[in-house]
Design a binder for these strands. Structure first.
Lengths: 348, 348
DNA sequence: TTGTAGGCGTTATCAG
DNA sequence: CTGATAACGCCTACAA
């Protein structure tokens, strides 16, 4: 088992100095053709590659991006990662992942771990718990140490950094307007509790759409799900709550749900209650997932372009890393990704 | 913007030597209580944390695991990553990801990039293209440099390394035997081309189950899908091929598919042709995905325990990294994860 | 009890 | 054209 070869070993073998080897390998004009040939041939033979860690230390630059997300087993987030990875690799960076698992403390620990020299900058979507606690000290500390952060999707307006978000408000508004245009008179909303920034915005979009069409929103048509419970419990409760919603409001003919699972569950419950989709009930969900495409009937969705978000976030971060304009007064960008409606069979 | 503080800076501020600071922070008995107090207080104030990169260089150990997978937007792989991350974090390691995107050259490039000092070891599931080309030099080179590799799911028997696999053969066999026990007389198989190791094993399981029950396998009931085409094309072709299968073999009353999408597509086509599930046709898929659970009817599946695979792979790798028994004759383990059948409505 | 020196692998600068 | 030296940040054996 031969360890990776180093400059020092090459130097010793060829009886030249380390710096000569280094220069020869970088094709420096300082070095004679002869020596270059010899060194390069030897290096090739032993498959020499500079040690990244040593380079990172020397250059104070790791060429690595840290991405912190709440959950990886989730279509949206894995697509974002794919986007980040794509751009990062193209631009010579690696990607290291940290999962917060929706926990504040894991988010903090993970960030601290990576911030100690392992990476050059962060791409982050914050955990639900962090959103609830509204404790953002770890972001501010990281940035004050000169490490840039790009937030995506779940962002915090108080934090001054670059951001990539989807146009949640208009996405939701368009969806609901679509339902109205399709003839729905009584549209229910299935959303999350308000501390989730995106849930809040989508709720707002729903309300604005109604207002545009002079429809009075009704509190009993808005179902706010508590998604802090564990997954299974949450799902069971979900079904019951939706069933309750339908039973108490027989006239519902449209559903807008802030995510895929809520929309599918609504369809499932509706079918159970004998409603036909899209004849009796039309449904639209907000998502970038796979379920919608393969459900029966196919679910019409507001597409979030997750991969594109990842790409934009990565570009934003790397641009910042490579410019490093030492302006005291930094200005930050917020990129808004427009959504679009993917129509399937759950709407007319 | 204050950069991260270093030992050197603390030393200068406190007018002591760097090594005194270093020792004081590690609570060495060599240092006087007084000095320790002073140094530790100062370090805490400035939130000193040792630089990971410097530590990595010094210790020749990065405490980082590299994971190379063909695709991240895939339930199976993201679950594996979650398992790896979970164990890695618990044991003090970070995880860095590389996506091969099913391409041989991307796999090689990604591995080389990470092998140059960035990580201590690899967890890998090889790309389809690599399986086709059967070119494994990059694995052998990596290992010959003393960097351990753990392969999972898509493994290569020629390569001497630790492995974590699911019991594809028995998983498939059990599934098919279940169909037989449920009364199916004519069971079709929807699988991939043989170069995909797992597809091959699952096919074998299918055949063994039939044999056990003295059922003569029929070539016309085995559909081998070419999955090297691009995704959309592949899907369209899939539907046509399955429709053809049903039409040419009206007596089919059971389907075993080597993945989720094939199974769902089969159900979809069957429904289109007026078959009722599970009355006329029973279906089982091999998968760890989400679609099965939310499809209607729910798809019975052979569960792969992806997260567990990730956990075992990470433990295996870290054990190896931390033992480093310098035995010339290394012995390698292959951990086999047993599958189990998750019964839903697509079987009786 | 504290400090010095050397080394992890690399590159840049400067001297020979 | 080649080599010695310092530095990136940290740790540790050894010297004072």
């Amino acid at each position: 088992m031969k360890r990776k070869i180093t400059l020092k070993q090459i130097a010793r073998e060829l009886e030249v100095s380390i710096s000569t080897v280094s220069k020869a390998l970088r094709n420096s004009p300082e070095i004679s053709e002869d020596t270059k040939q010899k060194v390069q041939a030897f290096a090739k033979l032993y498959n020499y590659r500079p040690n990244n860690i040593a380079l990172s230390l020397k250059n104070r630059k790791t060429n690595t991006i840290g991405i912190i997300i709440p959950e990886i087993v989730h279509h949206f987030f894995s697509k974002v990662i794919r986007g980040v990875e794509l751009v990062a690799n193209k631009r010579g960076y690696n990607v290291i992942i940290g999962l917060s698992n929706e926990s504040f403390s894991k988010e903090v620990i993970n960030m601290e771990m990576l911030a100690n020299g392992s990476i050059d900058g962060f791409i982050i979507s914050i955990s639900k718990e962090t959103q609830q606690l509204q404790d953002y000290h770890h972001f501010n500390e990281t940035m004050s140490q000169g490490m840039p952060i790009v937030m995506f999707d779940r962002v915090v307006s108080d934090i001054k950094c670059d951001k990539v978000i989807v146009d949640d408000l208009n996405g939701a508004k368009n969806a609901v307007e679509k339902l109205i245009a399709n003839g729905c008179k009584s549209i229910a909303l299935i959303t999350t509790k308000d501390y989730v920034s995106v849930g809040k915005l989508r709720t707002q979009g729903y309300l604005e759409a109604l207002e545009n069409y002079k429809i009075q929103p009704k509190a009993e048509l808005i179902l706010k799900i508590d998604d802090t419970l564990d997954y299974e419990t949450h799902l069971e409760a979900l079904e019951d709550e939706i069933e309750q919603l339908f039973k108490s409001n027989r006239h519902i003919d449209g559903i807008f749900a802030v995510n895929e699972l809520y929309a599918l569950t609504a369809m499932k419950v509706a079918r159970k209650l004998g409603l036909e989709i899209p004849k009796d009930l039309q449904v639209i969900g907000f998502t970038d997932g796979v379920l919608s495409k393969h459900s029966t009937p196919g679910l019409t969705t507001v597409s979030q372009h997750a991969q594109q978000m990842g790409e934009r976030a990565a570009d934003l971060l790397i641009d910042k890393l490579e410019n490093k304009i030492e302006t005291e007064e930094e200005e930050f960008q917020t990129i808004v990704i427009e959504t679009n409606l993917v129509e399937r069979e759950s709407t007319k």
